[in-house]
Design a protein around this nucleic acid. Structure first.
Lengths: 211, 211
DNA sequence: AGCTTAAACGGACAGCTATCCGCTTGTCAA
DNA sequence: TTGACAAGCGGATAGCTGTCCGTTTAAGCT
């Protein structure tokens, strides 16, 4: 599971033999079926059994490819998440090259993350339901976001951009708390904040960290 | 459901007739059974069917009292949450009377909330799984926490304790993001932060808001 | 082409959640 | 005390998730 070769995510171990061609085809049919059903009726209202039926495969086949609906959702997001990650890291590299202050980079990053979440919250929300329970978000794609923010804050501190005496790792995680799907869902759906409002508030927070 | 008369939580509508005595007894037996099973084997590992069996009632009876495991967990927390709320509001009233700065009150509140969550995270976590899906956290006990923090920040702003130009409602919700059970679970279990570390970081954040 | 074998298949199944509905019982009024 | 009835009961049941295992088949070797 989670051995995504299509995108840029972690490859756990090299496959000893190539995947069989019928298996690959089935995987594609499953993803296509899921995408279609999700679009038609919403992620939550579609059952795994139905996805298997629509894809024309048995349940066993479905579950060998994706241990649960969460993994299936993550797989559907795989390409977009990989693209996002690449775009972001590239942009940050460019900004660093141009000498843009680290705190501003962090602000830009959080903005990009808010917009990404806003776009993909249904799948992210469902993915979280199943993945978070077993094993935290360990190894999950959200991990690089923590690393990135933490690193940006660290460099900002080294450059004297930040107030002294801050616990940076915890601060980073608190800043990123909004990105946990249930929280983001709460902020946008229940509290009715627009993405721009969230972005502004996060930028304010960052500005407060500045020396 | 969620018509908790035992504690201080919202009463949706006055019951037209008193609850029948056998029903009340069953409710108590269910709660007792759940508490015992949860303590023995952990919340996640206990099924509703088993709770019903242990309590000596039918599944129908169980589900009429608690629409899902989440509500059952909330009911188990009801007393403690009501106590917590009362203690907190009382303490805040006292602090306000003594003229303690609003920001410090907010800091104290967040500290108390961290400690409460740390103590009850297993039940809170399970409760969230089922409740958040249908209807957000609408009307749920977490609502008064938002109101409280928002109000404290508002008064702090009026008293000139805060920097100008902040979006207080959003700031309040971002400060409270840590309290969403999945996030708190993540921070303590996965990121391995001690409650005191989280408290310190939150206090730092609040200090940064100060004028 | 034919053989071998591990990979993949898919349907049956166990266990769970949540609902439904015919039966039972506590409660109130007379 | 008794009768009526709403409230409550609990087992049967539908539909879901995730697993298991006997069967099928693609792929590499000869």
């Amino acid at each position: 599971m989670l051995r995504e070769n299509s995108g840029a995510l972690v490859v756990l171990d090299a496959p000893l033999r190539e995947q069989r061609s019928d298996a690959a085809a089935n995987r594609r049919r499953i993803l296509a079926a899921a995408e279609q059903l999700f679009a038609q009726r919403g992620v939550a209202a579609v059952s795994m059994a139905e996805i298997a039926r629509t894809a024309g495969v048995g349940q066993g086949t479905l579950y060998r490819n994706f241990a649960n609906k969460g993994e299936l959702c993550l797989a559907l997001l795989d390409t977009q998440m990989a693209d996002f990650q690449n775009r972001v890291l590239e942009a940050l590299r460019e900004m660093a090259y141009q000498g843009k202050p680290w705190l501003e980079q962090a602000g830009w990053f959080l903005e990009a993350l808010v917009l990404f979440n806003a776009q993909h919250i249904p799948l992210l929300f469902e993915a979280q339901r199943e993945i978070a329970a077993g094993g935290g978000l360990l190894g999950s794609p959200l991990q690089w976001q923590r690393v990135t923010v933490s690193a940006l804050l660290g460099r900002a501190a080294q450059s004297g951009e930040l107030k002294a005496g801050l616990d940076l790792p915890v601060a980073a995680d608190l800043l990123l708390a909004f990105a946990h799907p249930p929280v983001f869902h709460f902020l946008t759906v229940h509290a009715q904040y627009a993405p721009q409002q969230i972005i502004s508030a996060l930028r304010q927070m960052l500005r407060l960290l500045a020396a």
